[in-house]
Amino acid sequence: MSVTRITDVSEPLVAAFANLVPQLSSSATPPTRDEIADFLAQDGVYLFTYSNDDGAILGMLTLATFVIPTGKRAWIEDVVVDEAARGHGAGAALVEAACEYAHEIGAKTIDLTSRPSREAANRLYRRCGFVARETNVYRYGG
């Protein structure tokens, strides 16, 4: 089992997006190969994958970083582990790798959001050291 920061598109990566994105969001369409390439080419955006010993990608996580006047910040987004692989440490391995990398590149804080109904995910984030904040989250637009 291994976590890798991905920099290039491959056929196994395209297949993993096709498998994992529907498990993450019922309303999202998996990106095309070109869209994945554009995603990976962004400055400050990093994709981490979790693979089994056979090299099959069973999970992924996006780390987005940006600099604001108070320092470099990071957000973890779109964490998903294949249903068949859940409960075996893939999520924790992804989160820990992303946090380690964020600190290596100078992020002062790492934030994420998770719906309360995602009980297993919320337990995972607390186990990884995240603390719920007293805040409101607002969204503009659809």
Rank of each mutant, 00 (worst) to 15 (best):
N122F: 02
P31C: 14
L112D: 06
L112Y: 08
I105M: 07
L47C: 13
S26G: 14
N122I: 04
G129I: 13
F39N: 10
P31D: 11
Y50H: 14
Y140P: 00
R73G: 05
E134D: 15
A97E: 10
E11K: 10
R133L: 15
Y50K: 12
Q23S: 11
V14F: 01
A132K: 07
A121K: 05
S2M: 15
N136S: 00
A121D: 06
R5V: 10
R126M: 07
L13S: 00
R127W: 00
G89C: 03
P116W: 10
T29K: 15
S26P: 08
L124I: 03
K108S: 01
A16R: 02
P31L: 13
N122W: 04
I105Q: 07
A18Y: 05
R86I: 03
V80T: 07
L61C: 09
G129R: 13
L124T: 07
L94D: 01
A85P: 10
P12C: 02
N19R: 15
L124W: 00
G91V: 01
F39M: 15
L58R: 03
L112E: 07
S10V: 05
Y125G: 04
A97C: 06
A37K: 06
Y50L: 11
I105Y: 09
F48M: 01
Q42I: 05
I68C: 03
Y125K: 04
G44N: 13
Q42T: 13
D78Q: 15
T135S: 14
G55K: 02
T29N: 10
C128V: 08
A107W: 08
E35D: 10
T49R: 03
G89H: 09
P12G: 01
R133Y: 00
A64E: 12
L112K: 11
T70E: 11
